[in-house]
Structures are given as C-alpha cells and as structure tokens.
C-alpha cells in the first residue's frame, strides 16, 4: 500500500474502512448529545404546560418547509453516493453541490425565522422553552453549516475523481443531521 493513500480508505481491525467506522462513531456520540437535549426537553415539556403555550408562537409552516428542504437534500446526498459508487466523480460532485444548496437554503430560512422571533421578543433568555428551542435548533444549525463546508471540500475532490469513498461518509453524516431535524420538527413546531 502506498503511504500517499489516506488511512481512511484502508481496512481496520473492525472489518470496515477506518473512515466509515469513524463516521459511525461520530454519529454514536452525536446521538448522546442530541438525545440528552431532546430527552431533557421532553421531560420539561410534559411537566410544564407553559412549554405548550410558548411553542404556539413557533411557525409550523417554516418548520415544515425546512423539513422538506432537508429531506430533499438527503435525496441529493444519497444520489451523490450512488454516483460515487459507480465511479462517476463529476456527477457525485454535482449532487453534492445540490445538497450544499439545500443546507444553505435551510440556514437562510432559519436566519429569517430567528430574526422574526427575536424581533417579537422571544430570545434565548425569554423562558425555558425558548432556551431549549435556540439551543437545540442552534446546535443543529451548526451541524448543518459544518456539513456544508465539508461537503464543498469533498465535492471539489470528487470532481477530480479523487477520494470518492468520502462522498458516502459525508452523506451518512448529512442523513444523520436530517434525522435529528425529523425529531426536532414535531417537538418544537407541532406539539402545541
């Protein structure tokens, strides 16, 4: 094996490439992070009726639109994975760019939504609900931004037919970010 090849493309003792193993470890740790926030939110939501009163001020349609955006971007990410598996780096890069567009649109909509809510006086210190809301959605938004940045880097390499295995890895991460939002949406926008 050439020393120039990244170690993530080689097999590890686990029987799977190190890169894929690392991504699943990241996801496992992320489940604990987001799981801790979500379970804490559910406990407080069930114990305090004031959470429902505050949740009534979130905009369900904006949340639904962002869910649509993330689901569609996940479709683009998995299409990029399929293209990378078939060795078509240019097509994989194109689909990754579409995925990035979805992530950027998600952040733009979120920015508009937060500006509107803060303008109406709902800030992170307004009440326990809004503290959870901005913490959970903010942490998720940071993951979206990180995913978009990494995806642009992976797409640039894929376009030159380099490191195509990374297309799958960033895709798996992106789908996880999608799954987190799938649970945040009903908790923060629907349960009123």
């Amino acid at each position: 094996m050439s020393s120039a090849r990244p170690i993530a493309t080689t097999r590890s003792a686990s029987g799977m490439p190190t890169g894929r193993l690392a991504v699943w470890w990241v996801i496992a740790s992320e489940i604990v992070i987001f799981g801790g926030i979500l379970t804490s939110y559910v406990m407080y939501r069930l114990a305090h009726d004031s959470f429902a009163e505050q949740a009534a001020h979130t905009n369900t349609w904006i949340g639904a639109f962002n869910t649509f955006v993330l689901l569609t971007s996940s479709l683009m990410a998995v299409q990029a994975h399929k293209a990378a598996d078939s060795g078509d780096g240019a097509k994989a890069a194109r689909f990754l760019h579409y995925t990035c567009l979805g992530g950027i649109l998600f952040i733009l909509v979120k920015s508009f939504e937060w500006a509107s809510e803060i303008g109406r006086g709902y800030t992170i210190s307004s009440s326990p609900f809004w503290s959870f809301y901005y913490t959970a959605a903010g942490l998720h938004a940071l993951h979206v931004i990180a995913g978009v940045v990494i995806m642009f880097i992976v797409a640039a390499a894929a376009k030159q037919y380099r490191d195509l295995h990374r297309v799958e890895l960033i895709g798996v991460y992106w789908h996880f970010v999608d799954v987190v939002w799938i649970f945040l949406f009903p908790l923060l926008y629907i349960a009123k």
């Binding site: 399929k82 293209a83 060795g87």
Partner: peptide, 25 residues
Amino acid sequence: DHAENAGNETHGGHETHHGDYVRVW
C-alpha cells in the same frame, strides 16, 4: 451504461445496495 446499471457493487469494503431513492423521498 455501467454507471446507470450500478445497482449492487462492492465499494470500500462492503456491498452497497442502491434502491429507488426518489420513491423513498
């Protein structure tokens, strides 16, 4: 055609089974 028909193939040490993703979406 090879790329279009790439349904199941070994990639990076495991079998990847690509299905109808648009239908899932």
